[in-house]
Design a protein around this nucleic acid. Structure first.
Lengths: 270, 270
DNA sequence: TCAAGTCTGCAATCCAGGACACATACGTTC
DNA sequence: GAACGTATGTGTCCTGGATTGCAGACTTGA
């Protein structure tokens, strides 16, 4: 049992990544183009249901004190050397939360899309986390400082409930993944992950909301890290899926063709 | 990769279990005897830090409306047929939370000791859980009904924060287990689990607090279920540990002898 | 337009644990 | 104290994935 090697090194020395060149969301854009043009411009706080209960004045006032930070692909948003000191909202780009074992192997806890909140453990005082967060592409995050959090969030009962809900949902999903990892073969986990990844969970997958499911943007390696499997094994499963017409693959993105059968595979046990 | 078979059947038809005969906590008793004699008599609410912020009057008032329920060893506290409809506090006995896959294999999410709160997902509205809860021995639980919860807990900001903390801690532990399952060999997981099980986490492991660590009360099979491994594989690891003088085993209980080396093994990766 | 890095495919080999099949021992019961 | 159920010890065989090594296709930056 083990996992993708993606040594930390990879994550580190990628401080080049041109700011121009690649438009990370380019393809998504193509597909959801007809929608609102400003869907990559949201204010950190709107659209994030953690703050849904705040009036717009409150949001504005909070928003003013929220610095925005940019990370280039490969950069670490936080790590052990630079522990979580704020609550983050991913505004643009994609971020991977992961852990690294002593031997360098990594396991991915989550791959976040815009609208996601992370660093939430800060909220509940749990600090002992050796989690890392890496920008998978050039990203923009807003960070609420600890004091912001304490003043505006923990004191507000409406938000406290939202936080509880957030963490509850998280725990639920973790329980699910844990039992899947324990009880299901790789193929099932692959299928399941693809299916959930395909759902519009985050705040702004506008295109998706219209049934216009875009391709899932993920590489075999990223998927493997999320599954606790090797890239090779994951690739094999995906190839088989493709051969059976369940999915279509194009370098870095996967389109689901047969939800039905994928679902069946996801429920597989032995 | 897979797991203990303990078909659900086992959990069901155990409706005999003598009420007299065995005193579940008998051995613990022996070891913490010198302490307070009423440590198995706590009021559901005191000692449970979820309610720590309530005044004793509040606790009393709440306590009156809290029915106590007894379950015999093997009985299900909740299941899919009888979904979670309340928030439970384990007062006496031990309860196992688990899930069952389509093929009958089970994975144990937690084994709870007195003072533990469960059914917490109810708190955050998440309902889609196919979790089961089974009494591992004759047990007593208090149950707060949904309306109790809504009136007294969700509305109270102090408690909302406690809930968030509870769920946060849970998520943290799940993340840990998930990455361990993905990255560490069985032996490491066994060692780690033993070590954490040995810590006094729950509200009342009074004996333990004095460094007087009692034996861990768990069978190989239960441990295996918790680890996502087979009973056989788990047994083998434990035998090796015993042979190396790391632990001592007596039918149904395990005593740790060499925390040092166990810790080293727990950090093992390949 | 070329070189370097990234992503995916493929195959051979290895091995931790799973699946089974028993055997023994302990404890509970009557 | 006989008998059954539960807990543990072992052994064999078998397989899903891990490991390793490499090759071809795409992308991207300069």
């Amino acid at each position: 049992m083990s996992v993708v090697a993606s040594r930390l090194l990879c994550a580190r020395d990628l401080v080049q990544a041109s700011t121009c060149g690649d438009q990370p969301w380019s393809s998504q854009r193509q597909e959801s183009d007809t929608l609102t043009a400003q869907d990559s411009e949201f204010t950190c706080l709107s659209e994030v249901d953690l703050f849904a209960d705040l009036s717009s004045e409150e949001k504005d006032s909070l928003h003013e004190r929220v610095p925005e930070r940019r990370f280039r692909r490969g950069e670490l948003v936080f790590s052990q050397e630079e522990p979580v000191s704020a609550l983050f909202v991913l505004q643009e780009g994609r971020v991977r939360i992961f852990r690294v074992a002593e031997d360098g192997k990594a396991f991915t806890l989550a791959i976040l899309e815009p609208g996601a909140v992370f660093g939430e453990m800060l909220l509940v005082g749990q600090q002992m986390y050796d989690n890392y967060a890496e920008a998978l592409e050039d990203s923009v995050v807003c960070q609420l400082s600890v004091s912001d959090v304490e003043q505006h969030l923990l004191t507000d009962p409406r938000i406290a409930v939202r936080i509880a809900r957030l963490l509850g949902g998280q725990a639920a999903r973790l329980e699910e993944r844990l039992t899947d990892l324990a009880l299901r073969p790789l193929a099932a986990r692959v299928a399941k992950t693809l299916l959930t990844r395909n759902e519009p969970t985050t705040a702004r997958s506008l295109g998706a909301r219209l049934g216009q499911r875009p391709a899932i943007r993920i590489t075999h390696e990223q998927l493997a890290g999320l599954l606790g499997a090797t890239r090779e094994a994951t690739s094999k499963v995906l190839s088989e899926f493709a051969a059976q017409g369940l999915i279509r693959q194009v370098r870095g993105r996967i389109t689901l063709l047969d939800h039905q059968r994928l679902n069946a595979i996801a429920r597989t046990t032995a």
